[in-house]
Amino acid sequence: MDTLLSIWMWFPELLRVFVVNLALIVAIVVPLMICVAYFTFAERKVIGYMQVRIGPNRVGPRGWLQPIADAVKLMFKEIIIPTESNPYLFRMAPVLVLGPSLAAWAVVPFTDSWVLANIDASLLYVLALTSLGVYGVIIAGWASNSKYAFLGAMRSAAQIVAYEIAMGFALVGVLMAAGSLNLHDIVTAQSGGIHQWYFIPLFPLFIVYFISGVAETNRAPFDVAEGESEIVAGFHVEYSGMAFAVFFLAEYANMILIAALTVLMFLGGWQAPFDVAPFTWIPAFLWFGIKTSAVAFFFLWFRATFPRYRYDQIMRLGWKVFIPVTLVWIAVIGVFRFFTPFGHWFQ
C-alpha cells in the first residue's frame, strides 16, 4: 500500500488532479447513464400501467433488460446523413444537446460533502448550461436540411427562450430567500425539517419552475418541437441509430437534472423531512435519490395524462401567466424578508 502511495505521489500534481477529477466525473456520469437507461424503462412501464397495459415484459425477467437491448439495437444501426445536409453540424448537434445536461451535474451536491465542484455561483452556472442545450436542437433542425426538422427547431427555440425567463425569475426568488447563489448553501438554508423547505414560502415559484422545466426539456404536454402528429418528430426526424439515441439520452438526462434541481432548490435537497428516528436512518444521498425519483415521476405522469398544448397556448402560458406570477412573488418575498412573521424561512 505504501509503495502504491509513493508511486502515486511521484506523479506530477497536475496529472494527479486530472486523474482524480476524471475518476470523479466517471463516478457521476456512469450511474447517471444507468439511471437514464432505466428511466426510459420506467417511463414505458409507468405509462403502460396508467393506460391499463403491461408495457415491455419480454427481454429478461419482467423486461428488466429492455433498455440494454434498445441500446444495443441502436448502436448497430446505420447513421444516415442526409444529402445536402451540413455534415459537421449534423454530427455536432447531438453532442451539443447531451454535453450541457451532463456538465451541469458537476455542481449538484448529492450530500453535505459529495459535490464535484462547490463553486460560488453554481445556481447561475446551472442556469447558463441548461440554456445552452437549445443550440443542439436548433443546429440539428437547421443542419438536417429538412422542413419538418426546421419547423421543430424554430418552435423549440421560441419555446425555450420564453420559458427560460420564467425559470430564471423563479430562481431569483430562491436566491433571495437563501441569500446565496451556491446550491450547497441553498440546501443548508432549508435545514430543520419539511416546514423549512422552500416549496412552502415559494409555492408559486416552485410550480412555475417545475412546469417551465417540463417545457424546457420539450416533454409532453409541451412537446410541440417533436409534435409527431403535425411535424413527424420535429428536430430529430433525420437522425438514426446512435445519433438519435444521443438525443434520446439527453432528453432523459435533462429530465433527471430538472428533477434534481427542483429537489435542491425547493424540497430540501439531501435532508430528511423530519429530524426523528426512522427518517434519519436513511442516508443523505438516498433521500436525494428518493426525492429526485418522486419529482421525475411527475414527468411520466404528465405525459400519460395531458394532451399536447397548442403552440399559441404555450406562448400565452409562458409570457402572460408565468412571468407575471414570478414577478409578483419576487416582490412578495422582498416584503416578507423584512416585515415578517414569516422570517424563519429566510434566515
Binding site: 455561483a121 447561475l124 452556472y125 442556469l127 447558463a128 440554456s131 445552452l132 437549445v134 443550440y135 436548433i138 437547421w142 426546421f150 427547431a153 424554430m154 427555440a157 421560441a158 425555450i160 427562450v161 427560460e164 430564471g168
Partner: peptide, 23 residues
C-alpha cells in the same frame, strides 16, 4: 458572475433569437 451572465444573456438568449431570425 460576469462570465456566467455573459453566457446566460448573450449565448443563451440573444444569440438564440439572432439565429432564429438568420435561419
Amino acid at each position: 458572475f460576469l462570465s456566467i451572465v455573459l453566457i446566460l444573456v448573450y449565448v443563451g438568449a440573444v444569440m438564440v433569437l439572432f439565429l432564429f431570425v438568420v435561419m
